[in-house]
Design a protein around this nucleic acid. Structure first.
Lengths: 237, 237
DNA sequence: AGGACGATATTGTGGGACAATCAAGTAGGG
DNA sequence: CCCTACTTGATTGTCCCACAATATCGTCCT
């Protein structure tokens, strides 16, 4: 029936091998992307029966998918009340940026240390140019998206599987909040500020200066998080 | 049939509310404790049918439990091959300690900042005295256990839910390796060294010196991790 | 109007069935 | 005798159904 579409390179489980990206992961991807894109709004209930009908999967597969999403912190499952898209309060967002600071700070440090490894410099400059181009993109959303990719690329260079997994989870969360208000207040001034910090960061990494890379990354995320925290209450839970 | 025993304060899901510690969590706790205690050895296959029979649950519940454990990184699930207890290589263990360093470093910093909050000082001194007593315990395993509790207590003081969750996961992993060889080589010298670092750490936290608390914690974990990494290959995968 | 009760909706759990896939053992060819 | 291909068995992936447990909400009685 349902064609096994083997796309969805999202960033599934990491302790999981990849042989056939079948079934349950389709649901995980669908809901995750739906939340990211805002089709599922925070607090919205995710009724099993509806999802089964819409996604065309069995209840087992659906429930397992919900379980995984719950582990990732994207949804909340309350006993006998079912799943709902997680609401992010100020406290949550602040904690996420705090964690990103230490984790991506470590990632930047390691990336700088590993910059001489074969292929790494090429991969990094490629990601850097992509985010440079996106600075002038028409849609703020596109910039945020490319920005996320840039940060992720750095952690990839670090070469730590579990670290990458953790950062992925946190990025999705902060991505959500950033995205929510991206369309409304599109302040290109913020982009340029962010872009300038990216250049500093890139310089440090390309120079192999681990210490400076970490410091710059942490500062950058502190600034970004601070900006997000200044948003009005309506953008949170 | 099976009485719902509401013990198991292990540290289940954190985005999950607690109303009735029912069913699936029983399986999670059983397997998690089994792995921790060494009843399930790394690499051992976890066949669904066997677990269903031994634990007396349905396949649905069991599979959901395995899914959660996989998310926590305690087991590995390969498509069409089933679940098995995760094998920890040197690389894995090194990464775990690296992550603990930044995460618990942050935890110690926040704990120092929050030491004046009502009840915190009491809770901390209580945990400190417990680990002091355990330094002279008969069994090395008991010391390791109390040591883990001490570290966890610090992160609890930090007051960050997600951070505590991440640290819990990592502690279980490093706990496994430490525990494996605890019985064989019981070097009390290591305990005393570790205990001395704990005193430094406690002093910093009680003094509210966030900077020093973080530095001391990181140094302590670096030492501990270094010690574990010197173990022979037989203690890893 | 307020509270107790009951109907409805949804989830938690167990069990069964079948296809897909993997692992191993066996038979056939060189 | 060794290597390859096929058959067989074991195990998992997925779906379906049924029933119990629980929450949610509307109704009725006082």
């Amino acid at each position: 029936m349902t064609e096994t579409d083997r796309s969805a390179p999202g960033g599934a489980g990491l302790t999981r091998a990849q042989g056939a990206p079948t079934a349950v992961e389709r649901v995980v991807a669908a809901i995750r992307d739906g939340v990211r894109a805002g089709r599922f709004v925070p607090g919205q209930r995710l009724v099993e029966a509806d999802l089964i009908r819409d996604l065309g999967v069995g209840r087992n597969s659906l429930r397992e998918a919900l379980s995984r999403l719950s582990s990732d912190g994207l949804i909340v499952v309350e006993p006998h009340r079912g799943a709902s898209v997680r609401r992010l309060g100020r406290r949550d967002v602040a904690e996420f940026y705090e964690l990103r600071e230490v984790l991506e700070g470590l990632g930047a440090r390691l990336a700088a240390e590993n910059i001489e490894l074969p292929g790494n410099r090429e991969r990094f400059t490629s990601a850097l140019e992509a985010v440079r181009d996106a600075t002038g993109a028409a849609q703020m959303a596109d910039y945020i998206d490319e920005n996320t990719r840039f940060h992720r690329a750095i952690v990839e260079l670090a070469g730590r599987a579990r670290l990458l997994e953790l950062v992925d989870q946190l990025q999705i969360q902060t991505f959500r909040v950033q995205f929510r208000n991206a369309l409304a207040r599109d302040r290109t001034g913020m982009r340029e500020y962010s872009a300038a910090e990216h250049e500093d960061l890139a310089e440090a990494i390309l120079a192999g200066d681990a210490e400076r890379a970490e410091r710059t990354m942490r500062q950058h995320l502190r600034h970004t998080g601070g900006g997000v925290m200044q948003l009005p209450d309506t953008d949170f839970a």
